[in-house]
């Protein structure tokens, strides 16, 4: 049993001093900016709460299509996927995210049409 012998040799190796671990405090999964302007004005509001991908984006696109350049759409979503997808979609279309914040699981975006 060559390996069994190796076991014993390995066992004879020095016991390391145990180092007390420092556990960093758990961070929240997502962090949100506090709204810059709590009374930000929008030209159109869209409630996309409770919808799952791809519907929040599909509805957001349809809504923004009805606006004129420079006007602002306020959209509320609860799908976590929209958190990354809405900014990526906006960027691709040249729209500007003026603000976003979360309140009790509802994410609100203010999007200015390109």
């Amino acid at each position: 049993m060559v390996i069994a012998c190796k076991y014993r040799e390995a066992k004879a190796l020095i016991l390391r001093k145990f180092v007390k671990k420092q556990i960093e405090p758990a961070k929240s999964l997502t962090t949100f900016a506090v709204p810059k302007e709590k009374n930000m004005k929008s030209n159109l509001q869209l409630d996309a709460k409770g919808l799952s991908c791809p519907m929040p984006i599909v509805k957001t696109k349809k809504a923004i299509d009805t606006l004129a350049s420079g006007e602002v759409l306020e959209v509320q979503v609860t799908d976590k996927g929209a958190l990354a997808d809405i900014p990526a979609w906006a960027k691709a279309g040249g729209h500007i995210i003026l603000d976003k914040y979360e309140d009790a699981g509802v994410i609100t975006f203010f999007i200015q049409k390109a």
Binding site: K6, L13, V19, K21
Partner: peptide
């Protein structure tokens, strides 16, 4: 686990000493 500097010596010892003493056929 936040202690790279402390554990790098252990990692070296495991990979370069403890495992070296085991059979190559494993």
């Amino acid at each position: 686990a936040g202690l790279a500097e402390d554990w790098v010596g252990d990692l070296r010892e495991t990979l370069y000493k403890r495992y070296r003493e085991l059979s190559d056929d494993l």
